[in-house]
Design a protein around this nucleic acid. Sequence first.
DNA 1: TCACCAAGCTAACGTAGGTTATGAATTATA
DNA 2: TATAATTCATAACCTACGTTAGCTTGGTGA
Lengths: 248, 248
Amino acid sequence: MSLIDTEVMRGLNTQGALSHENKALLLGLELTPRYMSASEVLWQEREDTDQFCVVKEGWAYSYRNLKNGSKQIFNFYLPGDIIGIRDFGFTRRLTSVAMINKGVICPFSYQQLFELFGRSSLAVGIVATATRQQAQLSERLIYLGKYSAYEQLTHFLYEIYLRLKRIKAVENNSFFMPLTQELISDALGMSSVHVSRTFSMLREEGLVIRKRQHVMLPDPEALARLVEFNDSYIDEFLPPSFSELLKS
Amino acid sequence: MSLIDTEVMRGLNTQGALSHENKALLLGLELTPRYMSASEVLWQEREDTDQFCVVKEGWAYSYRNLKNGSKQIFNFYLPGDIIGIRDFGFTRRLTSVAMINKGVICPFSYQQLFELFGRSSLAVGIVATATRQQAQLSERLIYLGKYSAYEQLTHFLYEIYLRLKRIKAVENNSFFMPLTQELISDALGMSSVHVSRTFSMLREEGLVIRKRQHVMLPDPEALARLVEFNDSYIDEFLPPSFSELLKS
DNA sequence: TCACCAAGCTAACGTAGGTTATGAATTATA
DNA sequence: TATAATTCATAACCTACGTTAGCTTGGTGA
């Protein structure tokens, strides 16, 4: 998997926005795959930052261990996602990142990206990726602040569903989700007991059927209606002016 | 105020990182000031995106009105902050932005920025700004998720204090903060009643003295210790490699 | 100076969700 | 196949915070 296969670049590409030159630059970034075992740590908070990673297989997550013993998860990374943009512009990692299940990641250095910046307009793609991730976090912020656990979990599941659908990892409204309820609770800022309770509610209502790591949403749109999902931050293409720039 | 006077660019500048050429480019962005009255709206959610703004005077905030009638505030913008980076890469605004008190803002178009991208390495500065804002949000996420209202408010006040100190708006541990308790409650995701309760606690403990829009923190470091404040996302300079790039 | 209104304080009461605990189901390891 | 370790479900109890309400304070304008 090369950088061109990541979410944003793929989006650019399908719009025919990338010039041959820019494509060549992206493909030129040699991405040597690294095989990761489950719960293997990519990096720890406060380590020096020197690289991004593209997830090729498996799921990963960024988190911070808090002084009170609990853990806050910021983001889950699915295949095609770029990890580490958050730390771009800082000398040290702001969060730790670890694999959830086993998988494959492809690291590439900041240095390589700098060289791109100097030679091409691809920077906008990176900026766009960064803002997209920020937008995802912002949506989470809303649900943390103002909605009940029921609505939070609904929103979370629907977001995962949409992201997996984008990478063709949903079949018959079913998908593989290697998350324990404890991981979910760390992401949503609630207790794992309450995650369980809330899953029970969703199950009784027939909205979510879950068997371990296998999730089925009989009627995904019903979930979306429950939370009035704002999917522009996931689905939207780049504005036309971006495409123009990238063709040059 | 030109773009060069914004937080990140100022940081770059004081490190001697900006080449003459890049400085000239930044200064060339004519920023015509616009005088804003209190609670005037800069833009609404879903409007077309076409510009950033630099806050010259006054405070502003980004927010979204929720279907349940409440409001979630994402960010407060102080003088020197750039508003609108969040929307860069999207065709429509993700949040509304309004002034809190009266002030002055300087808009500049995305188009102008694109031209910079094509001609210089300044993109890294923008990326860095975007990631810094993201980092701020991430910290808020932690406090929303895992900490009590007391700790949240403490963290919030200390963050404002630090940001104001950076722009020399703190004197004798005192500063001007034009926020009502209701605005704070919308930002922290709690009720305004509970914000008041929590302020009372902080007052009784002698940690925060507040008279309307005037705040004094007799011992700021005491607050920092309470929340183990991670200030790297506010204070840290850019990594050396960025500076190198920007000199060219 | 008075009237008005927004902002803030405090109290009383209700509830969503935290905590602790126990047991069942599932997976991993020997 | 037995044993241990996770993961999940459900119950009982508790608390931080939301909600509603009534009062005080301070700023603003005629």
